[in-house]
C-alpha cells in the first residue's frame, strides 16, 4: 500500500478552488478534467518519482484543505515539509492575499521548507487579459522579497507545470546533500552525549 519510499514531503498550499489538485493531477497523470463545480480533483496524496540527473527523487505531494475553517490546523500539515508550493489564482486577488498568509506562516514555522510561488489558471488570463488581477511584476517582486521561485502555470494547457515540479526536485537534490552531511555530524555528537548503547554497557 505504502510501499513507495518517499524522499521529500511537498505540501500544496492555497485557497480553496485555486486549482491545487488540478496542478498535481496534470503533473502526475497528464490530464485535466473539466466540470462545472469542481474545485479539486484527484487523490490527496501522490508519490511521484522524478529523474534528477543520475538519481531518482521521489516526491510525496500532499494536498491540503484550503478552507479558512482549517487554517488553525495548517501547521500540522506543513511540519517537516521540504518544499511548499503556494498557489494563487491569477483571476482572484483574494487568493493572492491568502498566499501571502501561507508564506508568512511558513517563514515563521518551517525554516527548512523552500517556498515556490505558483500562479494558476494562466490559460484564462491569456485568453482574456482583462481577467488578470495579479500583475506579474507584483508577484515577481513578492517572490524575490521572500526568496522564492515564481511560476505562472496552467493546469489546462500544462504550461510550466513540469518545470515547477522538476525545479522542486532539483532543489531538493542539491540541498539534501548539505542536509545529510549536517545531520550526520549532529548524530555523532548526540551519540557521545546520550546513547542507550553507551549507558547499557557501562551501567555498572
Amino acid at each position: 500500500m505504502s510501499a513507495m519510499r518517499v524522499d521529500a514531503k511537498v505540501v500544496m498550499l492555497g485557497k480553496e478552488s485555486v486549482g491545487k489538485t488540478s496542478l498535481v493531477e496534470r503533473y502526475v497523470h497528464h490530464r485535466f478534467l473539466v466540470g462545472p463545480y469542481q474545485n479539486t480533483i484527484g487523490a490527496a496524496f501522490v508519490a511521484k518519482p522524478i529523474q534528477v540527473g543520475e538519481k531518482v527523487i521521489t516526491l510525496g505531494i500532499w494536498d491540503t484543505a484550503g478552507s479558512e475553517r482549517y487554517e488553525a490546523m495548517s501547521r500540522i500539515y506543513y511540519r517537516g515539509a521540504r518544499a511548499a508550493i503556494v498557489c494563487y489564482d491569477l483571476t482572484d486577488s483574494s487568493s493572492f492575499q491568502r498566499a501571502r498568509f501561507w508564506v508568512m506562516e511558513l517563514q515563521n514555522c518551517e525554516e527548512h521548507c523552500k517556498i515556490y510561488l505558483c500562479a494558476t489558471k494562466n490559460d484564462l488570463v491569456e485568453g482574456d487579459r482583462s481577467l488578470r488581477q495579479i500583475d506579474y511584476h507584483d508577484a515577481q517582486d513578492f517572490a524575490e522579497e521572500i526568496g522564492a521561485q515564481h511560476f505562472e502555470t496552467s493546469s489546462k494547457t500544462g504550461n510550466n507545470v513540469d518545470e515547477l515540479f522538476q525545479k522542486v526536485a532539483e532543489d531538493y537534490n542539491s540541498t539534501a546533500f548539505q542536509y545529510m552531511t549536517a545531520e550526520e555530524t549532529g548524530v555523532d555528537l548526540g551519540q557521545k552525549k546520550d546513547s542507550y548503547f553507551y549507558s547499557c554497557c557501562h551501567n555498572n
Binding site: T21, T40, I41, A43, W62, A65
Partner: peptide
Amino acid sequence: NEPASADDFLP
C-alpha cells in the same frame, strides 16, 4: 462521481 481531494477528505 469524481476522485476526492483534500478539500473533501478532511471534512
